[in-house]
Design a binder for these strands. Structure first.
Lengths: 406, 406
DNA sequence: AAACCTTATTTTAAGATATAAAATAATCAA
DNA sequence: TTGATTATTTTATATCTTAAAATAAGGTTT
């Protein structure tokens, strides 16, 4: 999406082509007339831009629409069959691949559990490669038709000359993951932090739709955030912006697995929530499936268990403070709560959460702030990863044969 | 600076004119050749763009430069006499006005103390209006030659339909300050938060120069921040982004004057620092001149007083945690420390501060992070306020007579 | 001093783009 | 079939940028 301001006439065409493609991608099929109104471009320009895109097969006419009495409007839309996208969600103990068409319809899924022993990059890469083959075989989509693969990883993806991945819990320390995977897979690969990918998905097609400034909070075992400003992902200097999980909300507070203390992750991540519960009921922490434990916690709360209720209320308070900090600093118009923990506890804690955010954030930042749950569930990161490919597709300046009039 | 991507050919010229003016404003006078190299534009375009600007008197030729053997290069620069700028710093108990020429050279200053009783907007507006007259009289600059007045205020300036100012300590609650002052002063007025103004000054002409992603931390009685990304001020949805002062670093910690608890302002603002000192030496807080008390604290520390040393060390730790949070979330390449407290304690705490930031921030965000002191002292906010006017001046699409060749 | 060399800047000519207005296309209704 | 109406394309024109040619402004050589 990066695109320096056009200076030459030829760059105008690229800008306008992007605007039109983006509009059709996000706003669905529409007539040339509507494209003209929404982009502010003249009808002649719409014709000139869409013509070559139709010829190239990127757009297609999907039908017609009643006009106000005269010639009916023909409807243009992205051609879903022009190409396909792969989105990969690399999690702490699973990987998931999904295949989408250009309309971002999901055509297939492969999900595999991995164990924390297998945290070598090579293992992930092998699994991704074989998952890709499986996905193509199952759906009959040829690899040549795939425009690219996006990968969301649970770590910091540094853009710093080359692309490095830092994932402390795997002891990945600035690993050239992108370079490694490009040796195995003959597809354009784009890689980014999972929260950023998810933010993209929610912003384009989910709960963030229509807004321009959105923060997507990812609450799982770990915690992260993706920030969208002026309709674009906020990356910062080296793409490590939005690392909310290890910001301190209680200096000298609970120890965090990062080695520091008082991080929001230590309070509102899955282990943190369970820690709050065990503080309350006096029992010892149990190892094992966080997923089941959190599920049980929410269920117990619904059934009226006081300790569970309080554990969730505390979580709402910690999260409220953390989100208030985000609201003060980023001033979004909307905060979207996601991640598997977010999905699980979201509905239950939402009233409390909103109240705490109002209490902790400054009025100008919280007055109009909407807080809502994410719309993509398990697929959020895969979908977002596919969006990384779409971004590239939209901003790529493919060569188009010039339309010859007459 | 807001400028939607050019769509029509005529907008190309505006974009390129802006690029050239900005380059000359920030990078100083240079030859047409250099302008062409730095903007990537052809020499013909440089001629076409600069011609009308020279005719209009916005640019001027300031001399020549040795070429590499042939015709010498003539040097173009902003004409400082084309117009003047007023920057106003509205503080908690003073106002300061400065007059600049277009090269941002300071031509005059007026500073007045106000008392907290006089916190009605009308009082400020009257003082600003009379200060403006005084400044013009003292320097002999005609009001017609003033391009505009920028004002930095210690509160949230909401852009939400109209421009409102919220300054809790004055019980200003979304006051239409801009509309009020425009009735008194016949000059274009631009108003923004003081920290944002200061960030602009440091970014353009001070310690942030050359960087693209900078956070400027303003430490005074209160605390604020201005965030620059991709070379532009980060404003968020309603211009209240960067409200760092009341983000929580110690949930349930010290009470803050905002009514909440644990805000960084309660630890690292002037009263917070003094509170740390009194916690240490067991004496009671004294009302009165914070400025003198902080001065004494720093002096005592230099003279080896242990309580003072520890108070500053604690301050460095709180500030370090707060800046680490900013680094994790915004991932700037540089953090600039300013404000009167920042200036006063900055040098002393810097080594400690850097260490704490490294300790609390994630390595990808802190590894390349530079922390430095601001370069504008007392004048930072006035200078930044004047920059608000420059931004408007640069992006305004003045009509220029078309250059007629031959 | 005139001729020549070199580099900077301006002018010219060509190519690309956008828009407004005119022309054409596609539908419905009489 | 003819009109009426609205959508889309084509045409004509105005801008803009650039590359290349021309000119300007110095120094150096003869």
């Amino acid at each position: 999406m990066k695109f320096s301001a056009p200076k030459r006439t030829i760059e105008l065409r690229q800008t306008n082509r992007q605007a039109i493609l983006r509009l059709l991608m996000l706003g669905g099929p529409m007539s040339r007339l509507e494209l003209g109104q929404k982009t502010g471009l003249s009808m002649g320009t719409i014709t000139n831009v869409t013509g070559p895109l139709l010829e190239a097969g990127i757009l297609r006419e999907t039908g017609t629409e009643e006009s106000e009495g005269g010639r009916p409007r023909s409807i243009l839309g992205i051609n879903p069959l022009y190409g396909y996208l792969i989105g990969v969600d690399v999690g702490e103990n699973h990987i998931q691949l999904e295949l989408f068409n250009l309309s971002l319809e999901k055509l297939g899924t492969v999900r595999r559990r991995l164990h924390s022993q297998e945290n070598l990059p090579e293992v992930y890469i092998t699994e991704i490669a074989s998952g890709l083959d499986e996905l193509c075989a199952a759906t009959g989509v040829l690899q040549e038709k795939i425009l690219g693969m996006g990968i969301g990883v649970p770590g910091v993806v540094e853009h710093d000359g080359q692309v490095n991945v830092a994932a402390p819990m795997w002891a990945w320390n600035s690993i050239g993951f992108l370079a490694m995977i490009e040796r195995q897979i003959s597809l354009p690969v784009y890689i980014d932090n999972g929260a950023k990918a998810m933010a993209l998905a929610e912003f384009w097609f989910g709960a963030g739709r229509g807004a321009q400034d959105v923060v997507v909070a990812l609450i799982g075992t770990g915690i992260g955030a993706g920030v969208i400003t002026k309709g674009e992902l906020y990356r910062g200097a080296t793409n490590s912006a939005g690392e909310w999980g290890h910001t301190k909300i209680v200096l000298d507070g609970r120890p965090c697995r990062c080695g520091s203390q008082g991080c929001i992750e230590a309070y509102a991540g899955a282990p943190g929530i369970l820690a709050s519960l065990h503080e309350l009921n006096g029992t010892a922490m149990v190892d094992g499936e966080q997923f089941n434990q959190i599920t049980k916690l929410v269920e117990d709360c619904r059934n009226g268990d006081e300790d569970s209720r309080q554990a969730l209320q505390r979580t709402a308070r910690y999260l409220g403070a953390g989100i208030a900090n985000l609201a003060n600093l980023f001033n979004p118009e909307r905060v979207v709560l996601g991640g598997w923990v977010g999905l699980m506890i979201g509905e239950t804690i939402m009233p409390n959460l909103k109240e705490y955010v109002r209490q902790y954030a400054l009025p100008p930042s919280s007055a109009r702030l909407e807080i809502m749950l994410c719309q993509f569930g398990q697929d959020a990161i895969c979908t977002g990863a596919a969006c990384l490919v779409i971004e590239e597709f939209l901003s790529a300046n493919q060569k188009f044969s010039r339309r010859v009039a007459g």
